[in-house]
């Protein structure tokens, strides 16, 4: 089609002088500030304020019903001599460490399997996500039934169906079996997150790298070791950090299944903080326990980021 330019000759209109508001909106710093405002507002109201309040409460002797007074670090001194608190710290670290290792080994394995061409791939990937999708409280209640001393499906199968055992298993009745039972439940719940995240990472690895390695005669293990692992590292470190944070601050599984029992052997710092603060009314002490989690979380985050992900790709340059 012929373009006829004559009729459409552009009329030149001089730009109108902007009003003050218009000029204000043209200024970049103002726009930046304006766009940030909602986010900053949300963060201040829902993050900074509660955090600040928690810090303040941890330095008071507030109880439910009585506004407290500032007592400095007394809550922390008193916690340092409390074996229950140290028990919770110890188990929180143990729980996080073991569950994280379990989740990553099984999650990585699952991701590698799902990365292959298998029938009903999409369907299977959706199913894998189930433990992650189900609200934690519901899955916690399901695990609570699985671990029930009288009505456990596991015991039922072992005793009444297979006749491999004569007695029902008392999963939660002694400290160590209760601890391991909770870790298993946590791993089950955490695998999908790791698997799907790592699967996303695996799919970004170019198949040509594997082809090249194949031509060079690399074995499957060598391919995994030299191609998969290094290229997975960026996403691995992010997934690891998130997973450690989630696990460290876990509450629902333990609270729904054991409430910290038997004799406080399965208390996490989060459940102990809740128990002391709300049912026990000692808001100050509960806040102090919650605040004590912050240094651990910081260290864990830093270790994950700098330990696993210290490579140069973090700065955007090539891996060497």
């Amino acid at each position: 089609m012929d373009a006829t330019t004559g009729d459409l000759a552009l009329e030149w209109k001089p730009r109108k002088q902007h009003s003050r508001i218009g000029r204000l909106f043209d200024s970049k710093p103002f726009l930046v500030a304006l766009c940030l405002l909602p986010t900053v507002g949300l963060l201040v109201v829902f993050l900074t304020y509660p955090l600040g309040l928690g810090l303040w409460l941890s330095m008071t002797d507030t109880t439910i019903g009585q506004p407290g007074e500032y007592i400095g670090l007394d809550n922390f001194y008193s916690l340092f001599s409390d074996p229950v608190f140290w028990g919770a710290v110890w188990y929180t670290i143990f729980y996080t460490a073991v569950a994280t290792v379990g989740k990553f080994l099984l999650g990585l394995w699952l991701a590698l399997l799902l990365n292959n061409h298998i029938p009903f791939k999409a369907f299977i990937r959706a199913i894998v996500l189930l433990p992650w999708i189900v609200p934690t409280v519901l899955s916690a209640i399901a695990w609570w039934w699985i671990y029930d001393p009288q009505f456990s499906i596991v015991s039922f199968v072992l005793v009444d169906v297979l006749h491999w055992r004569t007695h029902y298993i008392d999963f939660l009745g002694s400290p160590w079996s209760a601890r391991w039972s909770l870790i298993v439940a946590n791993i089950w719940r955490g695998i999908p997150f790791v698997a799907i995240t790592l699967l996303a990472g695996l799919q970004t690895i170019s198949p040509s790298l594997y082809e090249a390695a194949l031509l060079d005669g690399a074995s499957g293990w060598q391919q995994f070791r030299r191609i998969t692992v290094p290229l997975l590292m960026p996403i691995l470190s992010v997934a690891l950090t998130l997973s450690v944070l989630f696990t460290f601050s876990d509450f629902q599984l333990v609270y729904a299944i054991t409430r910290g029992g038997p004799f406080n052997s399965t208390h996490l710092m989060a459940t102990l903080a809740f128990q002391r603060a709300i049912p026990g009314s000692q808001l100050g002490e509960g806040a102090a326990i919650a605040v004590s989690m912050i240094p651990f979380l910081l260290v864990a985050t830093l270790v994950c980021f700098f330990g696993v992900g210290r490579r140069k790709w973090q700065q955007g340059s090539d891996n060497d």
Partner: peptide, 20 residues
């Protein structure tokens, strides 16, 4: 009965109703 160390408040109700 085995398991009483892990019971919450509904533990004995359930076990009693089940005849355990």
């Amino acid at each position: 009965v085995s398991g009483n160390l892990s019971w919450n408040d509904s533990g004995n109700n359930k076990a009693y109703a089940a005849g355990d």
